[in-house]
């Protein structure tokens, strides 16, 4: 296999795996693991009649996902127990939000660290409670602390001393250095309660946040998984009558119109996601570059097209930081 397209096809159209050869299965499993989509693939192929060894491999992925979800829910619960007495309601982000809210995007998804969003004026109280509750700074040097507090959209990462789990506490969804400036108070104001003391972003804001991740935050590595999240979210949310007008409005509010449009075009192109073309906009020549970058994996699960990869890495840092600060950041990174 020359690229990750068979994985995209298997997720979009599970029947496409019915007649593939043993070697293609081997490659498909490696690619799905490398893209961290093996759990989602297992969920999608659950009803199909597959070779026994493939069924066993996918069952293993379901076991892993179930364990991830137990851990994710438990971290959320322990965080809720710490913050609820202070009257703080964390807004769950990413994987934990999908799982706890029971969204299709959570099915089979691997979940890593816990990410929560808080109103900026609750940050100090929450930070104090987490430190008392057993969390420690992952990096406690003055540069890291100052850098995060001055420029980033989150506190420096905290690790629980005993459990070893990590929590990222955000006060907005993009670094303060980034050119788009999402409206953080609006994110909080529109958040939706999902359980006592817990919330998620509103549907439209969730899409905007996922687009932030894909386009502005990172070098597109793991992008197929982020796009799959978006596909599942859009299919869930677009059943609500006012979803598309809402998404158009919110991507404007958060200065994310272009990235959201690009994200929708990419997910439509790869996963056949039904999108409103008024919000997604017209295909651009550069979309093809993004698609090529997203699919760059060979049949052994290895990343290919190193040149494109580097270009995307520089690009992502460029978007997040003004040039002078970028130089300073890379300089300090290089020395540490």
């Amino acid at each position: 296999m020359r690229d990750a397209l068979p994985l995209v096809r298997a997720l979009t159209d599970p029947a496409s795996v019915d007649h593939i050869m043993p070697d293609d299965w081997t490659a498909l499993l490696s690619i799905a693991r490398a893209e961290r989509l093996i759990g989602s693939l297992a969920v999608r192929l659950k009803e199909r009649d597959l070779p026994v060894s493939v069924m066993e491999a996918l069952e293993a992925a379901r076991v892993q996902a179930a364990f991830d979800h137990v851990q994710a829910r438990w971290e959320v619960e322990l965080t809720r127990r710490l913050l609820a007495p202070l009257g703080i309601r964390p807004i769950l982000l990413k994987g934990s939000a999908f799982v706890v809210a029971g969204l299709a995007a959570g099915e089979g998804r691997m979940v890593g660290d816990l990410d929560i969003l808080l109103p900026a004026d609750q940050l100090n109280k929450a930070e104090a409670a987490l430190l008392v509750g057993g969390y420690e700074w992952a990096k406690d040097d003055p540069y890291t602390q100052a850098y995060y507090r001055r420029w980033m959209h989150e506190l420096p990462p905290l690790i629980h001393a005993e459990r070893g789990t990590m929590i990222d506490v955000h006060h907005t969804i993009l670094p303060l250095t980034a050119r788009p400036t999402p409206d953080a108070p609006a994110l909080v104001a529109d958040a939706v309660d999902i359980a006592p003391g817990l919330a998620t972003l509103s549907p439209a804001d969730m899409i905007v946040h996922a687009a932030c991740h894909l386009i502005a935050d990172g070098d597109m590595a793991g992008g197929l998984r982020n796009l799959w999240d978006i596909d599942r979210l859009v299919r869930d949310f677009s059943r609500q009558a006012n979803f598309w007008p809402m998404l158009a409005e919110r991507s404007g509010v958060h200065q994310m119109r272009e990235p959201v449009a690009r994200t929708l075009r990419l997910t439509h192109q790869l996963y056949e996601t039904p999108v409103d073309h008024a919000v997604a906009g017209h295909t651009r020549a550069s979309d093809a570059l993004f698609v090529r970058r997203l699919l760059s994996r060979d049949g052994w699960g290895r990343q290919t097209n190193r040149a494109t990869r580097l270009a995307f890495y520089i690009r992502s840092h460029w978007m997040r930081m003004p040039p002078l600060m970028l130089a300073r950041h890379l300089w300090i990174k290089a020395r540490s």
Partner: peptide, 13 residues
Amino acid sequence: PDEGLATLTARIE
């Protein structure tokens, strides 16, 4: 592997 279908890949490079 059964049915000629390996499900786990190890590599050195």
